[in-house]
Computed example of a mutant assay.
Amino acid sequence: MRIPFIKMHGLGNDFIMLDAREAELPTLSEQSAAALANRRSGVGCDQLILLERSSSADFRMRIFNSDGGEVEACGNAARAVALLHGEPAKVETGGGIIELSPTQGGARVDMGFPRFEWDSIPLDYAMDTGAMPVSWEMLNNPSAVNVGNPHVIFFVRDCEEIPLDRLGPEIENDPLFPERINVNVADVRDGAINLRVWERGAGLTKACGTGACATAVAAIRKGLVTSPVRVRLPGGELNIEWADGESIIMEGPATEAFRGSFEWADYA
């Protein structure tokens, strides 16, 4: 069975897009998702996105990280989906309903409301999520925010100095985070945020839309920046708007790279 795909990216965070809204595909397993995501023997991606029919929204977006694990949300993929869909839509995700609208070269996405309660992150036990009394070497007192998926955010002097390739997996898999965690290190300069992200199940990526949202919300809550704020990632910039009691608005680019097909049996 030959399956068409579309390769897209948002600021270098890249995706395999599979569209099953019109015709159903065979069941996608974690093993198949990981095999397709492999950059040597598969198509290669940070996340695989499966679009399906939905009874509660215009359609459903399922997200599989490069290790094959399914996760709740992906902001960069949401912009890519908006570009692919071509018109405003309400989209069902594992983290809730999001609203997206294509713009010139990208999209504007309503990511929904952030959550701050310790059991909504979730954490293993109760604590203040605004300044958590925990540390890993030079990283300490982070904030935690759930924006459809869980994030922990460390504000540091210079995010480039942090060995995130080493500390990221240690923090991601700490027992404090029963569903694992996305790890963000950020610094604030000239009213903008510089950000690097270790993504749960994917590792270091050039950009993370939900990480930009979570970090912007945490920085606004701490009074470090004002909304709207530019978030600078290795792959480029996103604009994030948020005020207390309101939903998060993310705006930025997305790009279609190429289209192709693969034989389903090769990855089953």
Rank of each mutant, 00 (worst) to 15 (best):
R2D: 12
M8A: 14
L11F: 06
L18W: 08
D19G: 04
D19V: 05
A20D: 04
E24M: 10
S29Y: 07
E30L: 02
Q31S: 08
S32V: 07
S32P: 11
A34L: 05
L36R: 02
N38I: 01
R40S: 04
G42H: 03
G44Y: 00
L48S: 06
L48W: 00
I49G: 01
L50F: 08
S54P: 14
S54A: 09
A57D: 04
F59Q: 09
R60E: 09
R60Q: 15
S66R: 09
S66H: 00
G68Y: 09
G69F: 05
E70S: 05
E70Y: 05
E72V: 01
A73S: 12
A73K: 08
N76F: 01
A78D: 06
A78M: 00
A80K: 02
A82L: 04
L84W: 14
G86K: 08
E87G: 02
E87M: 08
A89Q: 13
I97T: 13
E99I: 07
L100N: 01
S101V: 00
P102T: 06
T103C: 10
R108C: 15
G112H: 04
F113Y: 14
P114F: 12
P114Q: 04
F116R: 09
S120Y: 02
D124F: 09
Y125F: 15
T129I: 13
G130E: 14
G130F: 02
A131H: 12
V134L: 14
V134N: 02
S135I: 00
W136K: 02
L139T: 11
N140L: 11
N141F: 13
P142I: 13
G148K: 11
V156M: 07
I162K: 05
P163D: 07
R166W: 11
R166E: 10
L167M: 15
E172W: 06
P175W: 14
P175S: 08
F177C: 00
E179M: 11
I181Q: 09
V183H: 08
N184K: 05
V185I: 07
D187M: 01
V188P: 00
I193P: 03
I193E: 10
V197S: 06
V197H: 04
W198M: 04
G201C: 06
L204Q: 14
T205C: 07
T205D: 02
T205Q: 01
C208N: 03
C213I: 03
A216D: 12
A218Q: 12
A219I: 00
R221L: 14
R221Q: 15
G223F: 14
L224F: 15
S227L: 11
V229C: 12
V231A: 10
L233M: 14
P234H: 07
I240P: 05
W242Q: 10
A243F: 08
D244C: 11
G245C: 04
S247A: 13
I248K: 10
M250C: 03
E251Y: 02
E256A: 08
A257S: 12
W264L: 01
Y267L: 03
